[in-house]
Nucleic acid binder design. Structure first.
Length: 558
RNA sequence: GCGGAUAUGGUGAAGUGGUAUCAUAGGAGGUUUCCAACCUUUUGUCGUGGGUUCAACUCCCGCUAUCCGCACCA
């Protein structure tokens, strides 16, 4: 990689630490693997990206924002599949102490050990007793689940309840479905967004911000009726050429609208969300030529997904997955429904009520009950399946296997018309999930600009104006004669304007101050000089062009 | 997790069995200072725990962290 060859990545990382964008967390204790601080500059950048993300998706008009706990009961993540899917089953060689994955050890002896449960792995391990790859002994400890989620106990002592710190924000939104459904007056489609932290106890966090143990994520869960016709306007994305990698085709170029027409992107809403993701990334200053869409292979898909796309961004670490758009089907709501018995259904009204006419037999409870006792329920089911022309007495075989004789006094005609106006179903979910840290990394990576200045490297952070950590830097040319007071007055005025961040800097030569401001991407530097004291005009210097214009202070504050 | 390398002011580096040097950055002051100028002055460092030693930043071991491969993971 050329980045590494010329040291750009190294210089970038140094600058991020020095200027307070990103730094290893708890540094005075030696740091902690996979944990990062957004520093004095990065903190503001992060919150602006989060806000921009929320604003972007709230535009859909049928989205609510949620904030769910990070501490999550065990059962929730068991139902979601995370307890099973996020675990590796480990066993230790009693001879040499080497830990191995049980499924890996059994691979030569079983077609698909990855799919086995813990008990099955344990049994197989005992019976097959494979050799330790390290020392060739065959003496294994019990199989234990090593989970990628952080364990915790909710409550203390014996009354404590097992839990995890969430590995994603999604589950809280699924378990909140009834409340969201009510909020939207029971009309699909609608969605919930959440920006928050997720936690995964990664075995080997690497590559700076790319794989973290605590990370910022932003997810939208969009609930749809799988049978309702979808009207999506993909025309905004009919011109941008994008690189695709799909299941069957190697890399090719197309547009989102075309890829949907061609059946590569299956669901129109998935296509729409891919388009909106593309727009968001572009708004954040990600170079669109460094974005590509990759469809998951079928065997690569996570346990919940039906169709899944990665949006990858090219940066100093190569192509990195930064966003996933997954069609999760009904997997999540159905899992939680099964685990709790609570209704997570939505109702679909028929265009016309459906009438079902029943003209057959049913039981006479007053006689069937005393006669058949415990079998009465099964008798009812059997009798109602009999054709209308059945003559009694007759013999029927029950679902229990018993054969009973049904007498005329046990039955009566059953004639009724059932009117159904609609049906209940489990909504499907389409989920765009954003790794905010990875996106911020690439925003920084793409914005980081080096130029040559008298043989030295000059750094400019060309971040998008909408997300810059500092909007204005205010410099008095000299900190005397009242220039410092006027500068401070302007700085304070900026700071009292909602949403505006200003930085006062009176230290060092003016050129040095410009350089410091450029390095953290301040778009406008304002200098107060002698003339400012006369006529309240100041110099505004543009970050990217270096151009200076003279304007009045009052026009800046409007 | 395995293998290899590394850990010295905020940042980047040099160096030694007798408590350390340089650049840069930061603070104060000066300079009519508009693109990292200059002058004076000042602040601040041997990741962590243990061992060997009269003495350890230096040698040895553990831990933690970082980087590079592999593995894992999305």
């Amino acid at each position: 990689m050329t980045d590494e060859a010329d040291g750009r990545l190294e210089r970038l990382n140094e600058m991020l630490k020095r200027r307070g964008f990103l730094l290893p967390a708890f540094g005075i204790y030696g740091g902690a693997k996979g944990l990062y601080d957004f520093g004095p500059v990065g903190g503001r950048l992060r919150s602006r990206v989060n806000q921009a993300w929320l604003d972007h998706w709230l535009q859909l008009g049928n989205i609510v924002e949620l904030s769910c706990p990070t501490v999550t009961p065990y059962e929730v993540l068991e139902a979601s599949g995370h307890v099973g899917e996020f675990s590796d089953f480990m066993t230790t060689c009693k001879a040499c102490g080497e830990a191995s994955r049980a499924d890996t050890l059994l691979e030569p002896h079983h077609p698909n050990p990855d799919a086995l449960k813990r008990d099955e792995l344990q049994t197989l391990l005992l019976s097959l007793n494979p050799e330790c790859p390290a020392c060739n002994a065959s003496d294994w400890s019990d199989v234990v689940a090593q989970n990628l989620m952080f364990n915790t106990t909710i409550g203390s002592g014996s009354s404590g309840r097992a839990g995890f710190i969430r590995p994603e924000t999604a589950q809280g939104m699924f378990t909140s479905f009834p409340s969201i459904y009510r909020h939207f007056r029971e009309r699909l489609p609608f969605g919930a967004v959440q920006v928050g932290k997720g936690y995964r106890n990664e075995i080997a966090p690497r590559q700076g911000m790319i794989r973290l143990r605590e990370f910022n994520m932003a997810e939208l869960e969009y609930f749809i009726d799988p049978e309702a016709p979808v009207q999506v306007d993909l025309s905004p994305w009919q011109d941008q050429n994008i690189t695709f990698i799909s299941q069957d085709t190697p890399e090719f170029t197309s547009t989102i609208a075309k890829a949907h027409e061609d059946g590569i992107i299956h669901h129109p809403t998935v296509a729409q969300f891919l388009g909106m993701t593309y727009d968001f990334l572009a708004n954040m200053g990600i170079m669109t030529s460094k974005i590509r869409f990759r469809q998951h292979e079928k065997d690569e898909m996570a346990h919940y997904a039906q169709d899944c796309w990665d949006i990858e961004i090219l940066g100093s670490y190569g192509w990195i997955e930064c966003v996933g758009v997954a069609h999760r089907g009904c997997y999540d709501l159905e899992s939680h429904h099964k685990a709790t018995g609570k209704s997570l259904h939505a109702r679909r009204e028929y265009a016309e009520p459906r009438m079902t006419t029943i003209d057959a037999w049913t039981i006479n409870g007053a006689t069937v009950g005393p006669t058949f006792k415990a079998l009465a329920g099964a008798v009812k089911v059997a009798v109602e399946e009999l054709p209308k022309d059945t003559e009694f007495p007759t013999q029927v075989t029950l679902s229990t296997g018993d054969v009973v004789t049904v007498e005329p006094q046990h039955v009566k005609p059953n004639q009724m018309v059932i009117k159904e106006t609609g049906e209940w179903f489990i909504p499907h979910v389409i989920e765009p999930a954003f790794g905010i840290d990875r996106i911020i990394w690439h925003m920084i990576d793409h914005a980081y600009h080096e130029s040559d200045k008298d043989g030295d490297v000059y750094t400019t952070m060309k971040l998008q104006q909408s997300v810059v950590p500092v909007d204005y830097a205010v410099f008095p040319l000299f900190e005397k004669d009242g220039m410092d007071e006027l500068a401070m007055e302007l700085h304070r005025s900026f700071c009292t304007t909602p949403g505006v961040v200003s930085m006062y800097d009176g230290s060092g030569s003016i050129g040095r101050r410009y350089a410091r401001a450029d390095e953290i991407g301040v778009p406008k530097c304002i200098t107060i000089d002698h003339q400012s004291l006369e006529d309240r005009t100041v110099t505004v210097r543009n970050r990217d062009s270096g151009e200076q214009t003279r304007v009045s202070i009052d026009s800046l504050l409007q």
